[in-house]
Design a protein around this nucleic acid. Structure first.
Length: 469
DNA sequence: TCCAAGTCAATATG
DNA sequence: CATATTGACTTGGA
């Protein structure tokens, strides 16, 4: 139903051609790459292409990816989703047989595709596979067959095990865990999977707002205070950072470039914070990707404040799990730093009440590298807290760095390609919904921290890095 | 070593 | 059942 008028179709061509007809005879056996030369070592490793790969061309997917023109990841996932739902094909089947990925990964990929230019070679692979699949006239049919086969196998199995009530057939490979006895005990060999409580996540998010890249010391403290393993805290930060980054990417795609300097959305602006963060559900685009998550610390400043947010958890030695914890602390965000030594500049008392205007600049400064931590922390956190106001500096910084925005200046081969897709410019299609401006803002603020971090890191270096935020 | 990018796989949700 | 979320792990780069 949703429109999908785009005249896309052709863009696809190029890739198809690359696949279908290039490579003449040259057989392969160990490849003798027809291309240039580079990278003599590595590459092969082995098979690398367990999947069908439509018609099995002589080229490996990796090679295809390497020569693939820029693809419209968003458009591809959109079409794949359509085809799958229209034909009642599940992500699991599709993922396992076409992409070689698990259901969860497919779900993620389809829901939040990253723009092509942000993907690594590895990350592009699934998209090339999807494109290939879309180009295959029998794609659906093949998958349907697979589905049937699976069902048949399943039926067969069921049939055979009918007799005994306990189909317990460890079957499969490997040494079964034999004396498992009752499936109750033991299992602990597989780790229970940590599940962070909402309060713990909140606390981590607050910590993130203050310092996206906590020092080992800070991490240690967080772990202790939240009663979590250090590795869990580290992993959480890694995951959170990269997931926030991804959210920013999709914003980038959806809101299309459009980054007109100048006026921008002046209205609103100051207000916002105020009360409730009314997540404007007003009207929604079809595909609801509302996922603001990552930023909803929502933190409307106010009240609370001071007091390291975690103080509470401190004196509760008993096991963390299940315990509700107090949860009381209102977003006190404030440096949880003081707990440790700390000394030198104390974070400004600053509670964040109204009027607290950010400390604008701060970036560009930071010349000295040593001691970073503190300085950046306070600066960053301050701006984050005040959110709105900090924008000023944000924009200025962007200017300084001249962000490339959509960049993606193709370059794929010599422009001769002409027909090569043009996708990727559906920009204004959906205009901007300043609805989520608020959350967007927070995300950007978070991203700013990231930028600052990288700037600092590069500060001690010369070379003209390539910044793309 | 740290980090980012990709994934997996357990488990939430629908 | 299917799809979405998410802590942990794997790779590869510096």
């Amino acid at each position: 139903a949703p429109e999908s008028p785009m005249s896309s179709s052709e863009s696809v061509k190029s890739l198809t051609e690359l696949v279908q007809q290039p490579c003449p005879a040259i057989e392969t056996s160990k490849d003798s790459k027809p291309h240039e030369s580079s990278e003599p070592p590595v590459s092969e490793s082995q098979s690398t292409t367990p999947l069908p790969l439509s018609g099995h061309s002589a080229l490996s997917i990796q090679e295809l990816v390497a020569v693939s023109p820029e693809l419209d990841t968003y458009g591809i996932t959109k079409r794949v989703k359509e085809v799958l739902t229209d034909n009642n094909l599940g992500q699991r089947l599709f993922g396992e047989t076409i992409l070689g990925l698990t259901q969860g990964s497919v779900s993620d990929l389809l829901a939040r595709p990253k723009p092509w230019h942000k993907l690594s070679l590895k990350g592009r692979e699934p998209f090339v596979r999807m494109q290939l699949w879309l180009n295959d006239p029998n794609n659906v049919e093949k998958l349907m067959d697979m589905k049937r086969m699976e069902k048949k196998a399943y039926m067969k199995r069921r049939h055979s095990s009918v007799s005994d009530s306990q189909p317990c057939e460890p079957s499969s490979v490997g040494i079964d865990y034999s004396q498992g006895a009752s499936p109750q005990p033991q299992h602990q060999l597989k780790k229970p999977r940590v599940v962070l409580a909402p309060e713990e996540k909140e606390a981590l998010k607050r910590a993130y707002q203050q310092k996206p890249y906590p020092s080992p010391k800070t991490i240690e403290e967080l772990a202790t205070q939240l009663n979590l393993k250090t590795s869990t805290v580290i992993n959480w930060f890694h995951n959170y950072r990269s997931r926030i980054r991804r959210e920013l990417f999709i914003e980038e795609i959806q809101s299309g470039s459009q980054s007109q300097a100048g006026s921008s959305d002046s209205p609103s602006e100051g207000d916002s914070c105020d009360g409730v963060d009314t997540e404007g559900p007003p009207e929604g685009k079809p595909s609801g990707l509302e996922a603001d998550e990552y930023s909803n610390a929502t933190t409307k400043s106010q009240g609370g404040q001071a007091e390291s947010a975690f103080e509470a958890g401190e004196e509760v030695p008993q096991d963390a799990r299940s315990s509700e914890k107090t949860e009381s602390f209102h977003l006190g965000m404030e440096s949880l730093e003081d707990t440790d030594d700390e000394s030198r500049l104390k974070a400004p008392r600053q509670s964040s009440p109204p009027g607290s205007q950010s400390s604008g600049e701060t970036l560009e400064t930071m010349p000295n590298s040593a001691t970073e931590e503190d300085a950046s922390t306070s600066a960053a956190s301050t701006s984050v807290l005040t959110g709105e106001s900090s924008f000023k500096s944000k924009e200025s910084s962007e200017k300084i760095l001249s962000l490339p925005s959509t960049s993606s200046t193709l370059a794929a081969g010599s422009q001769k390609a002409n027909s090569i897709q043009s996708l990727f410019n559906f920009s204004e299609a959906v205009s901007s919904k300043n609805t989520r401006d608020n959350s967007l803002r927070k995300k950007k603020a978070a991203n700013l921290n990231n930028i600052i971090h990288r700037l600092e890191k590069a500060a001690s270096r010369e070379e003209p890095v390539e910044w793309e935020f």
